[in-house]
Write a protein that binds this DNA or RNA. Sequence first.
DNA 1: TTGAAAGCGCTAACAG
DNA 2: CTGTTAGCGCTTTCAA
Lengths: 344, 344
Amino acid sequence: MTPRRRPTLKDVAARAGVGTATVSRVLTGNGYTSQDARDRILAAAQELGYRPSALARGLKLQRTEALGLLVADITNPFYSFVAAGALQAASEAGHHLILCATSEDPKMESEYIDVLLESRVDGILAVPTGANLEQWERALEFGVQVVLVDRELEGLRVPSVTVDNRGGAFEGTRLLLGLGHRRIAILTGPRATTTGGERLAGYLDAHAGAGVPVDERLVRSGSFMREPAVAAARELLTESPRATAIFAANNVLGEVALAAINEAGLRIPDDISLLVFDDVAWTRQMTPAVTAIAQPMDRLGSVGVERLLDALGRRPGAGKATDEPTRLPVQVIVRDSCGPPPRD
Amino acid sequence: MTPRRRPTLKDVAARAGVGTATVSRVLTGNGYTSQDARDRILAAAQELGYRPSALARGLKLQRTEALGLLVADITNPFYSFVAAGALQAASEAGHHLILCATSEDPKMESEYIDVLLESRVDGILAVPTGANLEQWERALEFGVQVVLVDRELEGLRVPSVTVDNRGGAFEGTRLLLGLGHRRIAILTGPRATTTGGERLAGYLDAHAGAGVPVDERLVRSGSFMREPAVAAARELLTESPRATAIFAANNVLGEVALAAINEAGLRIPDDISLLVFDDVAWTRQMTPAVTAIAQPMDRLGSVGVERLLDALGRRPGAGKATDEPTRLPVQVIVRDSCGPPPRD
DNA sequence: TTGAAAGCGCTAACAG
DNA sequence: CTGTTAGCGCTTTCAA
């Protein structure tokens, strides 16, 4: 029942009848070794079930091949796909991922940054809350690479991987305007986040372009999280004249909007149209299926990790690190939740 | 641009004018120190932005406060909620999580187990694929605690946290039988997994209890993953006489079933009823909303981590470690996707 | 081609 | 109450 002591490199050396240095050479593949030594060492390692200690190695090498992944909320399907993409890219490159979820709370973000620094991760792929700028800068000073995904953080000069939020919101809103809507409500996240700001901007752009004035009461920007948005969505539907369409600026807000619409007994798209930024399972499965602005979610994660590896100089084939922001395209997927406004 | 060297405990000691041992005492809270030393050390650490190295500490203490989380697929909302629960419990206990996703592939599972062993995690919370028994045992021999979630692994004597799969499937099937269905199809996972086996068993139990024979052609057990299930779902609907209800044994299979139903132009619940094991976003949002067997998803994760901490002796208030499997209850949530079979 | 030994940053005797 | 020191497991000079 008492655990067997873990075999160390020294144990392997003893069993193979060589010095520790030779074992290290064989196992890491650095330096010359005789075929004979190689065979004996590999056999010994095998027999002992030897697994090198990433701790000792990391301490010595001052690098861990560990990356931090910091998202807002892993239960949000958007982030879970980002995580999946990041995980796959990291694994393929022989790196592992420490998972952190901030719930959009700067304090939690700050604590997690500390955890990651203590873990001596080589880099961090983060969806920033918007705060903790100094702490991020400190991480950079210490040589921890940082790449931002989904959102940017004003003032932090690091590579980022985001999507064309403004363009997507613009196209989506234009679709609605084209159907004849003149009272389009928007439920969006904090203006402080680049996603919140850009999606709102796209919405406003489209209105301006079409010469349609925006009723301020139809613009609700608060949080991307569920709880705070529920009241906003309800209120929205009590405005009069009522909005004829709702543009929800992420999938969570889409769920909230949908719930409010159902609660109010309205039918989609006859009474009200619904457009959602993010194309997730439920938007596809619904009847009527929901028109959505699709982001390449897993690519955000995988490209993010690639940028991180670039910054760490660990991508052989790839070009060198670049601070150029990477913008991935989005796509408006027209389904059945957007129709002309009710004639009333 | 060249990174600043990270301050070490020695740097803090020098700056505070004390020895390293005293710094260690202050920072870990072990041993006596004068108030004066404490103040100076804390100030020095603060000024330097000192963060202890978890690597060095782990190497010395032979424990890392790192846990491995091994799930099948993080984009499956079920696992993403399990992960969220696990992450929260781990964070609260001052531990961090290394994320691994196997895609139900034993080879990937095996590789991840190695990664976790090398990372010297203190414990692993795992959804086992069903293979790699010996490797799991080796992990235990080395003192790495293992707790299984969602599924068990035959032959591995470790704590587990699962739900009442059989009972849930039994109740759900009984509901369908009670509505008059006599041809209930089931789309389930591999019999080799305990979840696949138990849910099927519940389905069979209910039939036996009601004296309703089961048509073998209506039983499709294959995989819990999407791709392999698509064909099975399509075929199911071509059997004649056709099934009047489908019981999908997890949320992914539910999506697949729903798609097949739509593809076949059938309406729920008039033409066919749908029952899904797992209550996730889309089952709630659909119109008609889908009757589902709800699992406490995040609790699977949080209780799992608690068991792990128990096994590690790191939960002050709690009872000691137990190998007793923990079974969490499920709940049948009746909504609108199950009705009487079509009269035809 | 190989081994001895130093040292990565930390903790815990042990001696003062 | 505090400092010195050995050593956790690994890699890498340096000498042989």
